[in-house]
């Protein structure tokens, strides 16, 4: 009796498995030049690949919980979404597996929850916002804003105006150029790029930066340590650290005037010139003002209790 029961159940189970299997998708539509493309894929993996056609193609598999695929083109606006139920249980299972071919020049606004996004060779206004997903970006130009909460950001060969933000994830950037803004809370920042202007806001994570073409730098860190390797073209700098240590190492003697305020608990170590820090009257604070070469540029450094080293 029981064997008959199993024999009857087996095909039913197979049918139910088929019904929850991921649904393939392969759609292509023509779009206007410089379209505003809005993409929403909550979980899985999404890869954006640029091509020279004025059309968008979406290939791959939809999420197993997909409630339908939206690919609407209305004039200059394109909406792509793998629609999921408004509430579901379960974390990042396989999710959507999509490859999206896009025109190189566009305005892209993509958001996701746990999906990992990879994008390359795109130009224009690009904005990606994720919660726990990772972002991998290569060869983007124009204006790029990449944001994630706990995911990591890996960027390479970006140019133009770049904004990278994460709360607890790390940012790893290399071979980029242009102007960059980095914002992190506890993640670590590692950048080796040819930016001319950089702004770094960091709370507790560490910073490791090699910026050989840097002209202007603004940095504030609370308790994280910063290790900066800078080129000699620096002309303006404003660096604040509360309790974190800061090391500024130049590839050769810079043409800068330094004003360093060591604060009540900070220490200053100058290896660029023979100038020694001066202890302030009535307090334990140290400060140091000196010129390297003719001191044309200006760098201000402040700390409360960090150790400042320039070399």
């Amino acid at each position: 009796m029981s064997s008959i029961k199993y024999a009857l159940l087996a095909p039913l189970m197979a049918i139910s498995a088929l019904t929850i299997a991921a649904e393939p998708v392969d759609q292509q539509q023509d779009v206007a030049a410089n379209s505003n493309v809005s993409i929403k894929v909550q979980r899985g993996n999404v890869e954006f690949i640029s091509w020279d056609n004025n059309s968008i193609q979406v290939k791959g598999e939809l999420d197993e919980l997909s409630k339908g695929f939206i690919f609407d083109v209305k004039g200059n606006t394109v909406v792509i979404e793998d629609k999921l139920p408004r509430s579901y249980q379960g974390g990042n299972k396989q999710g959507s597996q999509l490859t999206i071919y896009l025109p190189t020049q566009l305005s892209l606004d993509a958001e996701g929850v746990s999906a990992d996004y990879a994008l390359s060779k795109l130009s224009g206004q690009i904005a990606i916002a994720l919660v726990s997903g990772n972002i991998k970006a290569k060869q983007l130009s124009g204006s790029s804003k990449l944001t994630t909460v706990s995911g990591n950001i890996n960027s390479e060969q970006l140019s133009g105006k770049i904004k990278l933000e994460t709360v607890s994830g790390d940012i790893d950037d290399k071979d980029s150029q242009g102007e960059a803004e980095f914002r992190l809370v506890s993640g670590e920042l590692d950048t080796h790029s040819d930016f001319t202007q950089v702004s770094i806001d960091q709370v507790s994570g560490d910073i490791e930066a090699t910026l050989n073409q840097i002209n202007q730098i603004n940095m504030v860190t609370i308790s994280g340590d910063a290790d900066l390797n800078l080129g000699t073209q620096l002309s303006k700098g404003h660096l604040e650290t509360i309790s974190g240590d800061l090391t500024m190492a130049f590839s050769a003697a810079p043409n800068l005037s330094f004003m360093i305020d060591g604060g009540p608990g900070g220490r200053i170590n100058n290896q660029l010139t023979d100038d020694k820090p001066v202890k302030k009257k009535y307090s334990s604070s140290q400060s140091l003002q000196f010129n390297s070469l003719s001191g044309d540029g200006q760098v201000n450094i402040n700390t409360i209790s960090g150790r400042i080293s320039v070399k």
């Binding site: 974390g91 919660v131 909460v149 706990s150 709360v167």
Partner: peptide, 20 residues
């Protein structure tokens, strides 16, 4: 749900960062 914990963690980190 790891995303939920991620957000809760991020909120806790932001709160601690804000205090700092």
């Amino acid at each position: 749900e790891h995303i939920q914990t991620d957000i809760a963690k991020a909120l806790a980190e932001l709160e601690s960062a804000s205090v700092q």
